[in-house]
């Protein structure tokens, strides 16, 4: 299934709540303010970054919406390697291929 998260990991539990229940088969798409959760913050490893890395290693796919990154001035190079940038068409494709969509907001 597809999970969308639109809140920043720094001020809202939405991403953490989502990561707590995602499965290896799932895809997670960060949109709107959710894209801040995709920033690579090494060396200080925040909980959500650790979780993204761990989940990614077991198969969960992570994405960010390009337009929202661009609007907020987040360069692709600043994002976690585990996260793939997709455009609006990519968002639609993820939604089409998923069994269902749960929105965390």
């Amino acid at each position: 299934m597809l999970h969308t998260v639109n809140k920043s990991a720094f001020d809202n539990s939405a991403l953490g709540d989502c990561l707590a229940v995602v499965s290896p088969n799932d895809a997670v798409l960060l949109i709107e303010n959710g894209v801040y959760g995709a920033l690579d913050n090494s060396p200080s490893e925040l909980a959500h970054i650790k979780n993204i890395k761990q989940l990614s290693a077991s198969g969960t796919r992570f994405y960010v919406l390009q337009a929202d990154c661009e609007a907020r001035g987040l360069a692709e190079s600043a994002l976690l390697p585990a996260v793939t940038v997709v455009d609006d068409a990519g968002f639609v494709a993820l939604a089409a291929e998923a069994s269902a969509i749960q929105s965390w907001y």
């Binding site: 639109n6 949109i31 709107e32 609006d88 968002f91 639609v92 089409a96």
Partner: peptide
């Protein structure tokens, strides 16, 4: 909030994509 704007972009992309 951005929800409506995001929905509009999704809708447009879905229709452009033939959905």
């Amino acid at each position: 909030t951005q929800a409506s704007a995001s929905a509009l972009r999704f809708a447009r992309a879905a229709l452009s994509g033939g959905h």
